[in-house]
């Protein structure tokens, strides 16, 4: 029973699907951020697996940059979320209608 690249890609896809379901299901913005973290992690698994099975460091490099992007996304997003919560007292997606035309 030898592990192949397809095992990891299928796992990555399953996790990505879980994240997508989370993005479509959640109304609370904090939970939405959790779902996006799951999406980024699923992609990271795929990159690391391709890097290993193709014998190339490029996949791991991309995974590093994705981790850096995820970290900065959390910092900015959480800051915006705190400001929004201080203003309105809610972090529900359906109530963000201030830009409605």
């Amino acid at each position: 029973m030898e592990l192949t690249l397809n095992h990891y890609l299928v796992l990555s896809t399953i996790l990505f699907a879980i994240g997508l379901i989370g993005v479509m299901r959640r109304k609370n913005l904090l939970m939405l951020f959790f779902a996006t973290e799951i999406l980024l992690n699923a992609v990271n698994i795929g990159f690391a697996a391709i890097s290993h099975y193709r014998g190339d460091y490029t996949g791991q490099m991309f995974a590093f940059f994705i981790i850096a992007i995820a970290a900065s996304e959390v910092a900015v997003g959480l800051g915006l979320l705190i400001v929004w919560y201080k203003r309105t007292g809610k972090i529900d997606l359906d109530q963000m209608t201030s830009m409605r035309g």
């Binding site: 850096a68 992007i69 970290a71 900065s72 910092a75 900015v76 800051g79 705190i82």
Partner: peptide
């Protein structure tokens, strides 16, 4: 560039929160 981006994100987080 990633280092500069993280610095910008850190300052944004401090200012916003």
């Amino acid at each position: 560039l990633a280092a500069v981006m993280l610095l910008v994100a850190m300052i944004a987080g401090i200012v916003l929160a």
